[in-house]
């Protein structure tokens, strides 16, 4: 666990956002929007909350990070590089042939990746398996699973939500990156998922609603979760897709869009000024 220094964590989130740009590059399509929206939560987990280190990657007691919304891998890659799991020079090679950093997280390719995700809806189940394994072994690590709000359309998520409540996995934490947009537009215009917190509550989970860009609120929620016993917890983090890049915020086209040279320059400037 790291230091509860909000300014330090905000700086790490900025480094993650710049890393996302580095991994995206110029004129390459990539998942900018969802990576930027989740960057603050990712920073809080890797640099404050989680018990982890590149020096003990296989430590059985480490906390686990599962990016169920695997398309936001750029945010995780930037965080892992900043933690020292691999050289930052890998970021610029993302998604090139033979690269360490694949389009979606793959544990065989990338140090620090716990499991493969990319096909939406599976990460919470995988995380539940890790949580059940931890309980069986009497270990007290936690499993943090980040899901997209659009991803909640997958029925499997609710199978996992039901089972986690049944098994009382209080070592499992779901964090919903609720940026209100999915690939083709607003969630409300696709299949409206409704009140996410109410749904998790109805399934027996303890829920928290926070501003997913307010670092203090994020770390408070992560600390509160530790006090909850006997039920799994869900943090619904209200976020802005594309957060930090002025022209990309709330623009569905940047779900998986490319930045031209001018936009790239502007994006870097925007983030540096955050």
């Amino acid at each position: 666990m790291g230091n509860r220094d909000i300014v330090y964590l905000q700086e790490k989130a900025k480094i993650i956002r710049l890393g996302i740009l580095e991994a995206l590059g110029v004129n390459n399509k990539g998942h900018l929007g969802g990576s930027m929206s989740v960057a603050d939560v990712v920073a809080a987990l890797y640099f404050y909350k989680m018990n982890h280190s590149p020096d003990r990657m296989h430590d059985s007691d480490r906390d686990r990070f599962v990016l169920s919304k695997g398309h936001s891998a750029l945010a995780q890659y930037a965080a892992l590089a900043e933690c020292g799991y691999f050289s930052k020079s890998e970021l610029a090679k993302t998604k090139t042939l033979g690269a360490m950093l694949q389009g979606h997280p793959e544990r065989d390719y990338t140090p620090g990746i716990e499991c493969n995700t990319g096909s939406l809806g599976q990460g919470l189940s995988i995380g539940l398996g890790m949580a059940l394994g931890g309980k069986l072994d009497g270990r007290d690590y936690k499993v943090y699973v980040i899901l997209g709000d659009g991803e909640l359309g997958e029925g499997q998520v609710w199978e996992a939500v039901t089972a986690a409540n049944f098994y009382k996995t209080d070592n499992l934490v779901a964090i919903i990156d609720h940026n209100k947009l999915q690939a083709t537009g607003p969630i409300k215009e696709c299949i409206d998922i409704g009140n996410i917190g109410a749904k998790f509550s109805a399934f027996g989970w303890k829920t928290f609603e926070i501003d997913g860009h307010d670092m203090e609120a994020i770390v408070d929620a992560l600390d509160e979760v530790d006090k909850v016993k006997g039920v799994p917890c869900a943090i619904i983090a209200h976020t802005v897709k594309g957060k930090g890049v002025s022209f990309a915020e709330n623009v569905p086209g940047f779900h998986n869009g490319a930045l031209n040279a001018e936009q790239f320059k502007q994006a870097k400037l925007d983030i540096s000024n955050m």
């Binding site: 059985s60 716990e114 499991c115 809806g121 599976q122 189940s125 995988i126 995380g127 539940l128 398996g129 890790m130 949580a131 059940l132 394994g133 931890g134 069986l136 072994d137 029925g155 499997q156 199978e159 996992a160 089972a163």
Partner: peptide
């Protein structure tokens, strides 16, 4: 579906 992915998670704990 959940069962199979949970099995994946369990395997990741050894």
């Amino acid at each position: 579906q959940n069962m199979v992915s949970v099995a994946a998670g369990l395997s990741l704990t050894g």
